[in-house]
Write a protein that binds this DNA or RNA. Structure first.
Length: 735
DNA sequence: CTGCATGCTCTCATC
DNA sequence: GAGCATGCAG
């Protein structure tokens, strides 16, 4: 029975067995963090310290929650049911449903998604006749969310933190928005934690209830918690003090969505007598990969400090490769060539990942992969429940369940088209405000009168009658049958069938999938909760495809081979991030680089380009400062642009080579900033032969053209296909 | 009330 | 360069 402890290394075992009192487990990348969490969970149960429902286990993502549930079940050798194991939001929602009346809601309150939130806020602003162009709802929502992340209800926002939003105060608008949410019997994502924390804070009865319940608390990814999550945890843990947080300050990459790295840095001060356990033995990566990652992250100042070392016997491996390319086309070509070479050596495609800083970078790779027929999958993008057809169908269900949900009603009232346009909608809104009733009720009153004429009146009456029928059907025929009927009778399916667009068939498929998914739930309410809080697009089957995703999306994953393209100043570190957050953001970008490298088990290949297209035009770029921060002895340089640079070749760069070992880094580091700068544009020597007006030239990217004007080293050239451009004379040659 | 042209923006992205 | 939101014609 206790052999589960014998499988741990000493540090892991210490983290598992220190059951009582506050514990912070600093778990470096690949050091068995999940194993510690799940084993600790099982250990508490098997040592009879608590029943399953007396442990609160919190994660950030559904994926992590699912994984933990499965692994606990394996350890216990029985299904892990009835646990308080889930995401912060799901667990907070569970508390709020139970005590809904204490937060001025009923237990069937709606959880608004970001799209609904924005529409609601926009309505609030428009009601005050604000110019939503100059002062965007998005911008205000950002401010409100930051307040919510920091556990501030409108009244708690200090005056000096208020900002002008047009002629209004952001704080007042926030208050109006909260009031609308209350009237709609709805909450947004931020409210789940905000209201739950507020409830625990002001209601001793509720707090006592949860104190009695939760004897042990486990928290995953603690470095990603924001203030309100931290308060929520602290309130729940203040009695038992049995809280164990697992995290890695070096992997804190979510400050932009409110995470406070200070939460983990301050743990000892927050929980006096806390035990700190460091997990530093890495079982994932080769020694050179670990050395490169450690050397890089050592440039950060605000860290608790730990050093990864190989935890396995045989950790030898190749150096991290740093490849220099001419442009992003060549880069994607080289990456695909390398992947094909690996495939020929019987490596799995699904063990290769391309990790980029920003979404737009995936496109070059996608195009290349499509061109050569290399199977790939993109992680991220639209999730199932974010698709328009799914949101519409759910809005119909919300209207049935929750007549006060104006946003849902508004969404479906004219979908499919019922002749109810802006005029009709305005009439309904005015009536709703005048009579102080929900939109659906106002619509019913209007339909009974002669306010609307013709098609609009017919359409509205028809919808209302059908809604009443569907509500009855919900009671008698059950939710699954009702959804199917509804999609049919509303004309919603027909609407897509009539559409000739190529994605229409897929949308109908999605709707069928929705009906299937609904069958897994006993109640409609349970399903709606699932859809808004749990459903993720984790339909990763085991087909063998290259992974293409952002660095953020890659956190927590691992691959044999990891490609890290686009390591250029401005792209990575991201310029906008630096502009907004300065030195602090630079450290976060560096942590992101660290996360990227530590995803690799066998091979990490970093690359950068001399030229990159930003929006419409080409810009030359400088290698990322992170490249020169990598310890030289664990790096191998390669790539065509690197060759051209070192040998000062004036000729056009040699194209992608599958084998990178073209150049070795010698004693002197090649990529200090000054040299990088000088390489940036004048990578080739200034030309001796001046190109003059009328000369026919060739440019690597733009092709053939004729010089229109020459101004020192700058040439205006009319290219045959690319149009007129101004380029440096170093980049063209006589044709 | 709906379809099309024009204009604006443009990291990361969980729940 | 492209997608999305808004503005005007029919």
């Amino acid at each position: 029975m206790s052999d589960y402890l014998a499988r741990l290394n000493p540090a892991q075992r210490e983290a598992v067995e220190a059951v009582d009192g506050p514990v912070l487990v600093l778990a470096g990348a690949g050091t068995g963090k999940t194993r510690v969490l799940t084993t600790r969970f099982a250990h508490i149960l098997l040592s009879k310290r608590a029943f399953p429902n007396q442990i609160l286990a919190v994660t950030f993502t559904n994926k992590a929650a699912r994984e933990m549930r499965e692994r606990v079940a394996t350890l216990l050798d029985r299904p892990a049911e009835g646990l308080w194991l889930g995401t912060f939001h799901a667990l907070a929602a569970r508390m709020l449903r139970r005590y809904a009346e204490r937060v001025e809601r009923t237990s069937n309150f709606s959880i608004l998604d970001p799209d609904d939130q924005l529409r609601l806020l926009k309505q609030v602003m428009e009601a005050r006749r604000m110019d939503t162009k100059r002062f965007t709802p998005q911008g205000l929502m950002g401010t409100i969310q930051r307040w919510k992340d920091r556990a501030m209800l409108p009244d708690a926002v200090p005056r000096e933190q208020d900002v002008d939003w047009g002629a209004e105060s952001a704080r007042d608008l926030y208050a109006a928005y909260q009031e609308r949410l209350r009237a709609l019997n709805a909450v947004d994502f931020g409210d789940l934690l905000l209201l739950a924390t507020d409830l625990l804070k002001r209601d001793p009865e509720v707090l006592a209830h949860y104190h009695r319940r939760f004897r042990y608390i486990l928290v995953d990814e603690y470095q990603d918690t924001n203030l309100v999550q931290y308060y929520w945890l602290r309130l729940l843990a203040q009695q038992s003090k049995n809280i164990c947080c697992v995290g890695d300050d070096d992997q804190s990459i979510y400050s932009w969505r409110g995470a406070e790295i200070e939460n983990i840095l301050r743990f000892e001060a927050d929980f006096p007598g806390a035990k700190i356990v460091r997990l530093e033995a890495n079982y994932r990566s080769t020694a050179p990969i670990l050395a490169a990652a450690s050397g890089l992250i050592a440039h950060n100042e605000g860290r608790l400090g730990k050093t990864l070392h190989p935890g396995r016997e045989n950790a030898e491996g190749d150096n991290v490769e740093v490849m220099a390319f001419w442009d992003s086309d060549e880069e994607s070509r080289a990456v695909s060539t390398r992947i094909e070479a690996l495939r020929r050596e019987n490596h799995k495609l699904a063990e290769c990942a391309v990790l980029v800083r920003a979404g737009f970078q995936t496109r070059a790779f996608e195009e290349r992969f499509i061109a050569i027929g290399l199977p790939y999958r993109i992680i991220g993008g639209l999730r199932f429940y974010e698709r328009a057809e799914i949101r519409d169908a759910i809005a119909y269900l919300r209207v049935l369940v929750q007549p006060a949900d104006d946003l849902a009603f508004e969404r479906i009232v004219n979908v499919p088209k019922r002749g109810l346009g802006e005029t009709a909608l305005r009439a309904m809104h005015e009536r709703a405000r005048a009579d102080a009733v929900p939109l659906a009720e106002a619509a019913a009153r209007i339909a009974a009168e002669a306010t609307l004429r013709g098609k609009a009146r017919e359409g509205l009456r028809d919808l209302l009658v059908k809604c009443a029928n569907w509500r009855t059907a919900l009671k008698h025929d059950g939710h699954v049958a009702t959804l199917a009927t509804l999609l049919d009778e509303s004309g919603y399916i027909a609407m897509w069938q009539e559409q000739k667009t190529p994605d229409a068939a897929g949308r109908i498929e999605n709707l069928k999938e929705l009906v299937r998914a609904l069958a897994d739930f006993d109640t409609l309410e349970g399903f709606l909760e699932h859809v808004s809080l749990v459903m993720d697009n984790d339909n990763e089957i085991n087909d063998d495809k290259v992974f293409l995703m952002t660095l953020h999306a890659a956190k927590g994953l691992e691959f044999d081979t990891v490609f890290l393209p686009g390591w250029e100043e401005g792209v990575f570190p991201n310029q906008r991030s630096l502009d907004e957050g300065g030195a602090k953001s630079l450290e976060e970008e560096r942590r992101l680089a660290y996360v990227g490298i530590t995803r690799a088990k066998q091979r990490a290949i970093i690359s950068h380009c001399a030229n990159r297209r930003i929006y419409a035009n080409w810009q030359s770029s400088v290698p990322s400062r992170f490249i020169e921060e990598l310890p030289a002895e664990f790096i191998t340089l390669g790539g065509s642009a690197s060759l051209a640079r070192e040998q000062r070749l004036a000729a056009p760069p040699v194209f992608a080579t599958a084998t990178p070992l073209l150049a070795r880094r010698e004693a002197a580091p090649l990529l200090n900033q000054r040299e990088a700068d000088s390489w940036n544009t004048p990578s080739r020597p200034a030309r001796a032969d001046k190109l003059t007006e009328g000369t026919r030239v060739f440019h690597q990217k733009f092709g053939y053209g004729v010089v229109l004007d020459a101004d020192d080293d700058r040439l205006d050239i009319r290219f045959e296909t690319a149009g007129e451009k101004r380029v440096l004379d170093r980049f063209v040659e006589r044709a």
